[in-house]
């Protein structure tokens, strides 16, 4: 896949595991460098998808980032320690959001 030619300087959390990253690069690039290609499951059929364009157009790199859903990973700059996970299907409601 991809190989980094420049050093990393921090880590982030993806699906519960630590991944090396460089502060300021996009989260999508961090994940690709770590060999992660499946970022989300589509709301239509549940199949897995990864980034296509890395420039904010395709919306195929959606992830859940620090509790926020449907975030475009290619437009999210890495901050050390950020916590990210796959976006599974459509937006879901967190416990705190449940009005019922």
């Amino acid at each position: 896949m991809f190989r980094r030619t420049e050093p990393t300087d921090c880590t982030i959390s993806w699906e519960g595991r630590d991944i090396p990253a460089r502060a300021g690069e996009s989260l999508a690039v961090t994940l690709l460098a770590a060999g992660v290609t499946a970022f989300r499951q589509t709301p239509v059929t549940g199949t897995e998808r990864g980034p296509l364009c890395l420039m904010g157009a395709c919306f195929d790199c959606l992830v859940e980032l620090d509790g926020q859903q449907n975030v475009q990973a290619c437009l999210a700059p890495v901050r050390p320690g950020m916590v990210a996970a796959m976006q599974r299907g459509a937006r879901h409601f967190h416990q705190s959001e449940d009005a019922a």
Binding site: E25, V29, L52, L54
Partner: peptide, 22 residues
């Protein structure tokens, strides 16, 4: 997953020094 555009890979190259291999 794993199919991307050339433009995307170029962004990965320019912003994070990532090159394809394998």
């Amino acid at each position: 997953p794993g199919v991307m555009t050339v433009g995307a890979a170029q962004i990965a190259l320019k912003t994070a020094g990532m090159v394809p291999e394998g």
